[in-house]
Simulated assay, not measured.
Amino acid sequence: MLDWDLWDGAAPLVGSDTDQAVGQRAVRHHIELYRAIEQQKSELAAEKMRDHLQFLDEHAATVHSSTEK
Rank of each mutant, 00 (worst) to 15 (best):
53 L>N: 13
27 V>N: 12
55 F>M: 03
36 A>K: 02
7 W>K: 09
28 R>F: 08
20 Q>R: 11
68 E>S: 05
27 V>F: 07
42 S>I: 15
26 A>G: 10
41 K>N: 13
58 E>V: 06
43 E>I: 05
64 H>F: 11
7 W>L: 06
6 L>C: 02
48 K>L: 00
57 D>K: 11
14 V>W: 08
49 M>A: 15
45 A>D: 01
35 R>Y: 04
2 L>C: 04
37 I>Q: 12
20 Q>N: 08
16 S>T: 02
7 W>Y: 11
32 E>Y: 08
51 D>G: 12
5 D>H: 02
55 F>D: 03
56 L>Q: 07
27 V>Q: 13
59 H>K: 09
38 E>M: 12
7 W>I: 09
30 H>V: 10
43 E>M: 05
4 W>D: 13
67 T>R: 12
20 Q>D: 02
22 V>H: 07
20 Q>T: 11
39 Q>R: 08
40 Q>H: 10
48 K>S: 01
64 H>I: 01
30 H>P: 03
59 H>Q: 10
32 E>A: 15
33 L>T: 07
69 K>V: 08
8 D>E: 12
13 L>C: 04
34 Y>L: 08
25 R>G: 06
1 M>C: 05
56 L>D: 00
16 S>W: 02
51 D>V: 03
37 I>P: 01
62 T>H: 12
51 D>R: 14
58 E>N: 11
16 S>E: 01
17 D>Y: 03
18 T>F: 12
29 H>Y: 15
46 A>F: 12
44 L>V: 11
49 M>T: 11
18 T>W: 08
22 V>E: 07
